[in-house]
Simulated assay, not measured.
Amino acid sequence: MSNPHNPIVVHPDAETLGSAVAADIADRMSEKIAAGGRFLLGCPGGRSPQTTYAALADEAANRGLDLGSLVIVMMDDYLQEVDGGWDHIPADAHNSCRRFAREDIQAVLNRAVPEEHRVPDANVWFPNPADPSAYDGRIRDAGGIDFFIIASGAGDGHVAFNPPESPVDSRSRIVELAEQTRRDNLATFPDFPSIDAVPTHGVTVGIATIAELSKAGALVLVGADKQSAFGKLADGEGYDPSWPATVYRLIDGAVLHSDAAAAGDRA
C-alpha cells in the first residue's frame, strides 16, 4: 500500500512535473532568503531533474529571487584512480557531474537572473574524494539540506551512486559502482561507447546523508524506462535496501512526482 506520509502525484508530462517541483522549491527558497539565510538544494545529475532545473530558473526570474544565497549540493561524481588514490574525473568530461552542475544547473539558473543575483561558483558543492566523510559535516554545519531532489536508477534503484544493499546508516563515501548502475548510465550519458568506458568508482552522499540531513524533498521519475522504478517506489513503507531510492520515504512529507510515462498503466 502507498505510504500516507509520502504522497504520490502523477503529472501528464515531464514539463508539468518540473513546474510543480520547482514551484515548491521556490516557495521554500523565497521564505528562507527573505529571512536572510542560505538555501541548500540537494541536486542529482542525469535526465530526470532537468525539467525541474529549467522551471526553477523561470521561478527565479519571475519572483526576482537572489540566487546568491542558493547552495547547490551535488550528490556524486565519477572518479578516476590517481597515484594509488581517487580523484574526480576531468571537469570537462561528457559524464562529469562537475560539468553537469556547471552547465545544466548553475548556468541554467544564472541565465534567468541579473548578474548580481547569480549562484557563485563557491556555492556549488561536491564531496571531496580525499575526505568524503567531511561532506556530511559541511552540510550539517550549514544547517542541513532545505530540499533534496532525488532520482532513481531505472534498473537497480540506485540513488546517487549508492548501490543496492546500501545500509541505511551509510554516509558520504567512495563506492564501487554496481554493474546495473553502470548500464543505466549508458542511457544517461550516450557518449559512452560501451559499458567498458563507464568508470567503476564514484564518490557519493550516503543514505543517511540524505535521510538525516534533509528537511524536505521530492523524488522525480521521468520516462517510460522508469516504470519498473515507479512500481518499486510507489508501494511500501520505509527504506528498502534492495532499492536505495526508497530513501525518499525517510524524509517526512517527501512527494513522489512521476510523469505519465513513468507511471505507465497506473497513471
Score class of each variant (00 low, 15 high):
S194D: 13
E179Y: 09
D225P: 00
F147A: 01
G231I: 05
Y248L: 10
R140D: 15
S152I: 11
A224R: 12
A187N: 09
I145C: 08
R182Q: 03
D146G: 02
I149Y: 02
A187T: 10
D184H: 03
I145A: 03
F192E: 13
E165I: 01
D225W: 00
D136H: 13
Q227H: 10
R171P: 00
S228I: 11
E237M: 09
S166Q: 11
V247W: 05
A197S: 08
G137H: 14
L221S: 11
A211L: 03
A245K: 02
L186S: 10
Y239L: 09
D191Q: 15
E116S: 12
V159K: 01
V159S: 01
A218D: 02
R140M: 12
A160E: 06
L213I: 10
A160F: 05
G155P: 03
A211D: 02
S214W: 02
A154C: 10
A216V: 04
L219Q: 05
A154F: 08
T188E: 15
Q180S: 07
A160W: 03
K226F: 11
D196L: 08
F230Y: 15
S242E: 01
A216Y: 03
T204M: 08
L250C: 11
S242F: 00
K215P: 01
T188C: 14
G202I: 11
R182Y: 01
R173A: 13
P132M: 12
I150G: 01
V168L: 05
A112H: 06
P164V: 07
D136E: 15
T246W: 02
D121M: 00
R182S: 00
R111L: 08
Q180V: 15
S194R: 06
F230D: 06
T188W: 11
N162T: 08
F148C: 07
G223P: 09
L221H: 11
Y135R: 14
Y239F: 15
G153I: 14
P190F: 13
A130T: 12
V198K: 06
D191H: 13
K232M: 13
I174K: 07
T209F: 02
A134P: 11
A151F: 04
A122M: 00
R182M: 06
A229Q: 05
G206S: 13
